[in-house]
Design a protein around this nucleic acid. Structure first.
Lengths: 250, 250
DNA sequence: ACAAAAGTGTTATCGCTACACCCATGT
DNA sequence: ACATGGGTGTAGCGATAACACTTTTGT
């Protein structure tokens, strides 16, 4: 090892992690990590966010994202799944990382960097239930968000931006819809996410021509207008198309 | 605060962070964090990655991404900039987070979660110089990567995937090109990044019709063929177009 | 003269937009 | 009968893929 300037961790632990060097590197191991989950659903023509009411300090009583500290012996990704389950009872959701929030003073109890996650779920399929230190769970409309604890508002904003970008290039919308849905419902969803109107005829043609939908040969019932055909997302077809180089567009 | 099950940090610090509670939360503050930078350049028709030769344990002598531990009083984002400068001398690069790598056993010296960053730079504009505990700096072709320390290979792969996605929808390619470039050079770059051939005539028409290029009314010199017109990226025009709802495509 | 890359024009096709129209159901 | 959303057909425009061709330089 040559003579170098800065005393980074790697400089000082050359000789098989001797006790001497352990002391030198200790100062780096002062972080805690947390995960925060942006869980989005779709209901009554609006995008909804899952929030908890905090039953613990700091920010007791305030709305916040479901999130908590990561255990030292726990993967960060698994931690997000565990924390979501602990606080809201929601399980088996595929969550995707957004980014790391690592400002020095973002958390009052010490140096806590948090990793943002997001997932799109079908509101009817999961029944969130307040648990652990969460006093309540609510779905709130993203167009009318309450004040959120910590920097959670930025985490939500970033996740929404990511969503709007990705939803155009990947068939994500289906996660938000019920198993069976009409093309009209699907169009309303995309209009809500992208805040943009589409021509009905053209939207149907585009979507159907992709071949991602399975026609269930079933009709709506009890609607005060002509009942629509019901479709479901065809996961298999999507995989087949992907392999052939297909790419989803708008 | 109600009686709840799990003993998370927020459960136990209600009363103004008393000494008693401090002990209870200490176990969460055992992490170190690091940053790893995927710096990509373009040279001789190939995408190049900046790697250092490690002059410190662990993995002494091995190739690795420029990366190091984050100081406890340092923002994660600033840390990436600082670390890149310390190890390679490269400054003033806008880096973007990719994701967090948070597996329990990913680092031999303890629980270290790392945040991946990436940036696209013009190889001719920056002169990387090994510094601090980096013994050497090299540009290596991404099509022929050496073995990399830790899980750095996955970090690179993820960054490349992100790049290939984003380069289609945002005018990122220009960061990799010199200030003045011909349309042919630009086409070669996109062909290298996307591993796909384009029709010359159509490529030019598409790019020029976007109005993102400033025609410098200048020609190449000393090339063994007809010299091409030189262009530069028109940052101003791009901002104007963005405001009007323009979106870059392929 | 030749190689090599710059640069241009034409055509035929495909996809998409816009718009008009009809259909089935509950009230 | 009417309101409401489901569902379809088409004409015309615009983008673009495919290809052939001309131009300008260095060797």
């Amino acid at each position: 090892m040559k003579g170098k300037k800065t005393d980074t961790i790697e400089d000082v632990i050359g000789h098989q992690f001797s006790a001497y060097y352990k002391i030198a590197i200790e100062k780096f191991f002062q972080f805690a990590m947390s995960v925060d989950c942006v869980i989005l659903g779709y209901h009554e023509n609006g995008i909804k966010l899952l929030v908890i009411e905090r039953g613990a300090e700091p920010h007791l009583g305030k709305m916040a994202l479901p999130g908590d500290l990561v255990y030292p012996n726990e993967d960060v990704n698994s931690s997000a799944v565990r924390v979501l389950k602990d606080l809201t009872g929601i399980r088996n959701v595929d969550m995707i990382q957004t980014k790391c929030y690592g400002k020095v003073d973002r958390h009052p109890i010490g140096r806590v960097a948090t990793i943002g996650f997001y997932a799109l779920i079908n509101v009817d399929k999961y029944r969130p239930l307040a648990n652990s230190w969460a006093d309540n769970v609510y779905w709130v409309d993203v167009k009318d968000l309450p004040e959120l604890a910590f920097d959670h508002r930025s985490i939500v904003d970033d996740a929404l931006e990511t969503l709007r970008e990705r939803v155009r290039h990947q068939p994500l919308g289906f996660h938000l819809l019920p198993m069976k849905f009409t093309l009209g419902e699907m169009q309303a969803l995309y209009e809500a996410v992208l805040d943009e109107k589409f021509d009905k005829a053209n939207f149907r043609k585009r979507i159907l021509s992709m071949g991602l939908l399975k026609d269930l040969n079933e009709l709506q019932s009890d609607v005060p207008h002509r009942p629509g055909r019901l479709f479901s997302f065809d996961e298999e077809a999507y995989k087949r198309l992907l392999a052939k180089g297909f790419s989803f567009g708008l």
